[in-house]
Design a protein around this nucleic acid. Sequence first.
DNA 1: GTTCCGCATGAATCGATAG
DNA 2: ACTATCGATTCATGCGGAA
Lengths: 289, 289
Amino acid sequence: MTVEMTALLDRIIQGDALTCLRSLPDCCIDLVFTSPPYADNRKNTYKGIPIAEYVDWFLPLSLELKRVLKNDGTFVLNIKERTEDGERQTYVIELILEMKKQGWLWTEEFIWCKKNCYPGKWPNRFRDSWERCLQFNKQKSFKMYQEAVMVPIGDWSKRRLSKLSATDLRRDESRVGSGFGKNVSNWLGKQYVYPTNVLHLPTECANRGHSASFPVSLPAWFIKLFTQEEDLVLDPFMGSGTTAIACLDLGRHYVGIEAMESYQKLAHESIERWRAANRSNSRQMALWK
Amino acid sequence: MTVEMTALLDRIIQGDALTCLRSLPDCCIDLVFTSPPYADNRKNTYKGIPIAEYVDWFLPLSLELKRVLKNDGTFVLNIKERTEDGERQTYVIELILEMKKQGWLWTEEFIWCKKNCYPGKWPNRFRDSWERCLQFNKQKSFKMYQEAVMVPIGDWSKRRLSKLSATDLRRDESRVGSGFGKNVSNWLGKQYVYPTNVLHLPTECANRGHSASFPVSLPAWFIKLFTQEEDLVLDPFMGSGTTAIACLDLGRHYVGIEAMESYQKLAHESIERWRAANRSNSRQMALWK
DNA sequence: GTTCCGCATGAATCGATAG
DNA sequence: ACTATCGATTCATGCGGAA
């Protein structure tokens, strides 16, 4: 890792996202996770980008993100288009098409299904309880650690697998085909299964009193899936620091960028609170050894 | 209703979708619900449209659908883009943009979350467990009956709802429809809440003889939401008749189009089975009065 | 009649193999 | 090289037969 990079590690740079991104070296980031400022046609709104300008505003950023990302790294973009004038706006899907022209591969679209979404009632639509998590990559093969996000198998299996019949066992064995000891590992493996591309996470954020646009568990899920410990995660719109907290929790390094000084301050406070809470843990850990 | 229209009511026309659509009069349909043939680059596949041609293939159809739909009617398009060469293909989002140019409003995108999705394991992606249900309208104000799709409130009932199979839902509907009068509606108002734009429905599997691409509960949900009894629902790709069954269950009229004679036959068989099963119910209903 | 258990089967996707 | 086909992987559910 370069000297300039080491100096930025686990820090939140205050400044314009595009300018700061340009100061980062090539191919140094393992995962970009971010939830950029939403489009907004109202004036005088914090960080709101007019809908008509959204794609043109984002494209220089995505180009820089492609430059700083490692070739086998991943970019996850959490975004949802606004409703305006009774219609879903199209800037997000236009952005996908334009990013492909930049050379990005649109690998997958995850759905973040918000269990407790914003309340409300409208005559012509229901509450919006999902957001897109768009996965982009630079090349077809990329790092992915699926075992890190396995989930407990469904309730149906408790009845079903609690009493494995002889035929079940036999069938499993025959399927394995080669090698010994695989029986046991297969059976143990059935406690957990791979998830799907729909995430069911509550909207609540872990830090009370501070508004984050997404819960820590959202970046945490993608960080576990696409990085290993000591890897480097970038969030060019760090906001109140949720991605950084997820990195601290998981032993990953982070680089954040945030234009608003007030938000940067909030993020630093969150991080300090995390460190304070973990200092005692570290001591306890040390005592255990 | 015109004479020509009355002759088509509750029938499945066998023929090419575009040709048959052109024979329908203007502004006569309350809801279009369909799941068109999915794109497929493989040759020799039934009804598969090559990915590169998909948008051009669909646009003449969507134009006709706009013509036959009532001004305050709704078009719901159930579709999901394929993965090809490690990427999500873009023809669906391109289609949205092109349909807007035709004058359609892209009002909403519902997510159909399939709990029992296709199994499999791959190094670079998880199982795909969701599909798009794109809502399009001709004008900003359209008919919507939100009370018809309210769901039970509370965690215990949420858990129960998530475990409701398609047959359970159908049974629920029939129970609701069997005339408890005001008692039920009062009870409904207190115990039930409006749903969100995410639908949790299992796919129907182990169906004998044919593969139904979606469960009856999927069209049923949109039919309840966007139509009233005696309204007219169109499915230009009727397949094995799932949309027709939903209409029969809910007392709506339907017009179906299906090119493949074998599928049309399957649909007729399903409908006949439905009528046979309901004949006894009708007798019972008559006895009650 | 219920309840339980065994089994088949998906609007899938990738990588290897064959033409 | 490039394309077409095939086998392997995997989990939630409905259905049918058995207890």
